[in-house]
């Protein structure tokens, strides 16, 4: 910890937990407002919510208030315990993602040596919650949605992980903090001052990561588990009130976390050229925030433009194109690493 401030372990832990608990709803709110409400509306040549607050900034708070007031409905034949637990599991996986994301040289909950591995592992925890939700709802649509989700998330975990492996090889570490440092100290074509954001050497990895993240987040074109027009809302069909709010928050919280991981892995995370030390700690969160917005812009841009695949086509895309591409990417990166 810092030289000036000596806090006990429990104190730092409490602060970290509080910050993470604050960041998730905030991140989810910001993403949902900026992209879901505003960007999507303007892409469809409408204005979106305008009444709650200036330009509708308070709309989501009003929605949250509405959700909290709603009756907590359980379907008659639902498995009550599992049904109640499922949204919590999904939200939990979103929370755990934030543990390893660095927002500055020292601003991180826990700088695990296996940071990337940890993040991708806990992100797939949400599948469990989705399966629980789909099964316990006692609804055929939910069940189909949950099974699709399981199949899809397993298929896309692979290109996601393999796409990231290129970065890990190039940085030589699995720690997210280490990857940021490696990008900061890297040299792109001999220029040392700017560092080396891995989006340039790992462009293919970045594309794979975005596609994989899109599928992990079950966003169009990979939103079959939800598929409003086919499965109504997939595994979420039977949820109302604050349990639905949990799913909603988890969806955007995870999107925020994935954008953060993408920004960290490929855009240099909190690093901005020329800023070091304590200044980087102060500036870091803002820089990271801006980069997150950039990555999420792309994620949501695809979401609002494309139609969705069919389940079997999605599997075909993953196994026939993305995974071989990722393997080639790893091969080339490894060869260059050895040669250079």
């Amino acid at each position: 910890m810092t030289a000036a401030l000596h806090l006990a372990y429990w104190q730092t832990t409490t602060i970290k937990v509080l910050v993470v608990m604050g960041v998730i709803p905030l991140g989810a709110l910001v993403l949902a407002y900026v992209f879901l409400l505003k960007m999507m509306s303007h892409m469809q040549s409408r204005l979106g919510p305008m009444e709650a607050g200036p330009h509708g900034v308070l709309q989501l708070l009003a929605d949250a208030g509405k959700f909290l007031q709603k009756e907590d409905v359980f379907p008659e034949r639902a498995d009550r315990a599992v049904f109640a637990l499922a949204p919590v599991v999904v939200l939990m996986s979103a929370f755990l993602l934030y543990v390893v994301i660095p927002a500055g040289p020292r601003l991180t909950v826990s700088n695990l040596d296996t940071g990337v591995f940890f993040a991708l592992a806990v992100s797939s925890l949400s599948v469990l919650g989705v399966l629980m939700a789909g099964w316990s709802s006692a609804n055929k649509y939910s069940l189909i949605g949950a099974l699709r989700a399981a199949g899809q998330l397993i298929a896309y975990e692979l290109p996601l992980v393999l796409g990231v492996v290129g970065v890990v090889i190039q940085a030589g570490t699995m720690s997210l903090q280490g990857i940021v440092q490696a990008q900061a100290h890297g040299a792109l074509l001999g220029f040392k001052t700017l560092g080396e954001p891995y989006i340039l050497p790992q462009a293919l990895g970045f594309v794979l990561f975005i596609v994989g993240a899109q599928a992990e987040l079950t966003q169009t074109p990979f939103d079959m588990p939800l598929a409003e027009t086919e499965l109504v809302a997939g595994y979420m069909v039977e949820y109302t009130g604050f349990r639905f709010l949990f799913f909603f928050m988890a969806e955007f919280g995870t999107a925020f976390a994935f954008a953060a991981i993408g920004a960290t892995l490929f855009l240099g995370g909190w690093y901005v050229p020329g800023v070091h030390g304590t200044a980087a700690d102060v500036l870091g969160p803002f820089v990271l925030g801006a980069k997150i917005m950039l990555v999420s812009f792309f994620i949501f841009w695809f979401r609002f433009t494309y139609p969705r695949f069919r389940e079997d086509q999605l599997q075909a895309v993953a196994w026939k194109y993305l995974i071989p591409l990722a393997l080639v990417n790893i091969l080339v990166t490894g060869l260059l690493k050895v040669v250079v």
């Binding site: 303007h42 892409m43 040549s45 204005l47 841009w301 433009t305």
Partner: peptide, 14 residues
């Protein structure tokens, strides 16, 4: 993507 981006930059019709 171009179509949606162009629409975003134009004023809304609401």
């Amino acid at each position: 993507l171009g179509v949606t981006l162009r629409t975003m930059l134009r004023p809304a019709v609401t």
